[in-house]
Design a protein around this nucleic acid. Structure first.
Ligand SMILES: Nc1ccn([C@H]2C[C@H](O)[C@@H](COP(=O)(O)OP(=O)(O)OP(=O)(O)O)O2)c(=O)n1
Ligand SMILES: [Mg+2]
Length: 481
DNA sequence: GCGGATCAC
DNA sequence: TATGGTGATCCGC
């Protein structure tokens, strides 16, 4: 029963590794071009379909993250929709949305039947599980999450004062990595195509990425972090967790003052601003770092009452690991806030896997990992490129050759070898196909990668053209030498 | 072990 | 004209 229906959507992504710590991302971006983006949010459902079980990725942008005071969210949605509709990208989003709606309907059937049942026996069992979770609460650490403000954009503004006080974004006409706060007032956001952003804000200035600069600044701020916690955990170029419990023992200062000082040092040494959250664990610190952004900080006291009062009214979407899809699933069950997660714990228990249940409950209780460590072993190394569509096998092989060479060079830098190779194809209709293959011997050379990739292409040639994006990943590592 | 989905930045 | 790149996890087979 656990979660037969909910099949795929993988919740848990971050926290649930929990016992240890969050995941961790190192030196991102290598791409020269422009790069970035992840899961675009494009469109908006300008066309109103009354079906509530539909609309996840469509719209929902104007998240208020930073401003949007004066702007009309509906207008923004409309403009994005007009610019997106009928595009291959948008059609694919609609298709994914449709598939999700079908799953949701199934889930709702189960949910409705649960509501009719007498769950009193389950009830006490679930309450017991909540108590077990509660026992894991640890309020003995002071954890800080630091997050630079509009990171890439702030660096570009710093280095080119003519960009200041104007709506500006970093990327190119195809994709933006981030925008400054002025641009956010127009609805311009990370992972938005530049050409759409310009419809929202015709005066928008778009500057190209300089990843080397961002990496250099990242190095600077990490050095500052190390002064306060040598074991700090970097989560990306602009973000890290620190456990300043020990540091506080060495001085007579409040957590707030220490964090003020960290942010001051960042500003003095980089001329950039950061925001921070201070709380008992990583989950809460992360949520807090967003509250007074930009250039602010927020302290949540290590106190159960304060924590519960803080988390109860929070939208589930604020929980790291609950994204667009999971939010929509929960909303279907009338669960919009963390408090509602607790209220509906029995249903959550019946609807989801036990690990998902634990993840939701812990989040709703404000319980999270407080383990902050630097050590990290990568589990995969990948390279991907998007290009104008290709259909001739030989062209695909040529692309594969380039990627294989590049990947092999990267592997060499870290002396890595692996025994599983994954090739991901993104078709021009944005459908993605992954084919993975394990080999007996560890591989690391460009030729090995190329030869395996070539077979994979050959076997799948009919379903992967015309091709738009090509990605090659090596997994299952051990070190060479 | 594989393939699709989700999530973060 | 045009919707990224990198790394990780979960679920159902
Ligand atoms: N989909 C994304 C999201 C972010 N980034 C890059 C650009 C950002 O500058 C940087 C940090 O991401 P954040 O989510 O912290 O966003 P910002 O720092 O830009 O803004 P803020 O933290 O003030 O909201 O990562 C990216 O390339 N692609
Ligand atoms: Mg940031």
């Amino acid at each position: 029963m656990e979660s037969d229906i909910l099949d795929s959507h993988g919740f848990l992504i971050g926290e649930e590794l929990e016992g240890d710590d969050f995941h961790y991302v190192e030196e991102d971006q290598k791409n020269e071009n422009i790069g970035p983006s992840s899961i675009p949010y494009p469109s908006s459902t300008g066309s109103k379909n009354n079906d509530l079980i539909r609309n996840s990725r469509i719209g929902e942008l104007a998240s208020n993250k930073a401003g949007l005071q004066g702007i009309d969210k509906e207008k923004v949605k409309q403009i994005i929709y007009e610019a997106s509709k009928n595009s291959a990208f948008y059609l694919n989003e609609e298709k994914k949305d449709e598939a999700l709606s079908i799953k949701l309907k199934q889930m709702m059937k189960k949910y409705e039947s649960l509501k009719k049942q007498n769950l009193s026996t389950i009830n006490s069992k679930v309450d017991n599980l909540v108590q077990v979770a509660e026992r894991e609460r640890d309020l003995s650490h002071i954890i800080v999450h630091i997050d630079m403000d509009a990171f890439y954009a702030s660096i570009e503004e710093r280095d080119n004062p003519s960009l200041r006080n104007k709506p500006m974004a970093v990327g190119d006409n195809s994709m933006l990595t981030t925008s400054n706060y002025e641009a956010r007032n127009y609805g311009v956001r990370s992972a938005m195509p530049g050409f759409i952003a310009k419809k929202l804000c015709p005066e928008l200035i778009i500057v190209p990425c300089n990843f080397d600069k961002y990496r250099a600044v990242s190095k600077q701020i990490r050095e500052i972090f190390s002064r306060y916690d040598p074991d700090y955990t970097p989560m990306s170029l602009d973000e890290a967790y620190l456990d300043i419990t020990k540091y506080l023992d060495t001085i007579d200062e409040s957590p707030d003052n220490v964090v003020e000082q960290i942010r001051r040092e960042i500003h003095e040494e980089t001329k950039l601003t950061a925001s921070a959250g201070i709380a008992a664990n990583k989950l809460l610190a992360k949520i807090c770092s967003d509250l007074n952004k930009p250039n602010g900080q927020y302290r949540l006291q290590n106190n159960v009452d304060d924590i519960m009062n803080f988390i109860r009214p929070l939208s589930v979407r604020k929980i790291p690991g609950i994204g667009r899809v999971t939010e929509r699933i929960l909303n279907e069950m009338d669960i919009k806030t963390c408090g509602a997660i607790l209220d509906n714990r029995v249903y959550i228990h019946q609807m989801f896997s036990s690990s998902s249940f634990n993840f939701f409950i812990r989040a709703a209780l404000g319980i999270g990992s407080n383990i902050v460590k630097t050590d990290h072993k990568r589990k995969s190394k990948s390279i991907s490129r998007t290009f104008s569509s290709l259909s001739k096998p030989d062209d695909l092989y040529e692309k594969l050759r380039e990627l294989a060479d590049h990947l092999a060079a990267d592997l060499l830098k870290e002396r890595l070898q692996g025994k599983t190779i994954a090739i991901t194809f993104k078709l021009v209709n944005f459908k993605m196909i992954t084919r993975e293959r394990s080999v007996k011997k560890y591989i690391h050379t460009a030729d090995d990668i190329y030869n395996i990739g070539k077979q994979v292409i050959f076997i799948n040639i009919n379903r992967i053209i015309p091709l738009q994006t090509f990605e090659s990943t090596l997994i299952t590592f051990i070190n060479r030498f």
